[in-house]
Amino acid sequence: MKPAAFDYSAPESIAEALDLLAEHGSGAKVLAGGQSLVPMLNFRLARPAHLIDVNGVDSLSYISANGTLRIGSMTRLTALGESGDVAGAHPIIPKAVAHIGHRAIRNRGTIGGSLAHNDPAAELPAVLMALDAEVTARSADGERVVGMQDLIEDRLFETTLGDTELLTEIRIPAAAASSTSGFQEFARRHGDFALAGVAAVITTDGSTITQAALGAFGGTHATRLPTAEAALLGAETGDAAFAAAGAGAAADFPATSDVHGTAEYRSHLINVLTVRALKEAAGNSGGGNG
């Protein structure tokens, strides 16, 4: 038997799940799609006393597009990537989802699970940061709304969610009418964890950039890229502004070294990928490793 023993509950409602979390608190883990948690159980890196499986909570799985895009936390990545409502509102989301693992992973993996697990190489935390998303965290005591940056801070493999809180919904504000986006990541093999990646959303007034939001992943934690954003604001779209943003992104990026690449290499990648993502957003070819 691979995982250590645990008690198992499969609630069918949010209220039931919250009661279980209130009862078991720090000894419990919530099982969403299981594509990260079950490997950790199999390696015994995670040894929860109690597993609360929310796959039977049907009310956590929905996509509602009406101005603000509302996505239930248990929405599977395949459903997220194939939703016409999501693609219509934020085409960067299906573009990013296509890079997450493989079909078998996306059939089980969920948007809320990805955020709560908060792997620093994961696409969705950075993409949702760039889209100024918020999440709802509910507990038996009530609910609160948390912005993506406050959810992640500078953490990895954990978030600011409390032990008794359940991430129930992701809300993404409507994009500005003239906003465009680009998504670029570099991985050694399609579906592998990215060495580095960038999500860029820009709004222009004619040719002047009026809003810029960039999220990066593959460093020590998902992050916005404030120096790169500042370099873009008020600038004309084009190579000069994009090059300045790329340099700013490399300065902002919390690069780290491991067996797959050095921090220096990853910083270089972020620079290059930022320029490509911005060119893609501006309507030019992004090129490179899609």
Partner: peptide, 19 residues
Amino acid sequence: CTILLDGEVVRSCLLLAVQ
């Protein structure tokens, strides 16, 4: 360990039997 679960391709090592 790839199998089909309700017609969808999944990893059977990343599911619990009780699920």
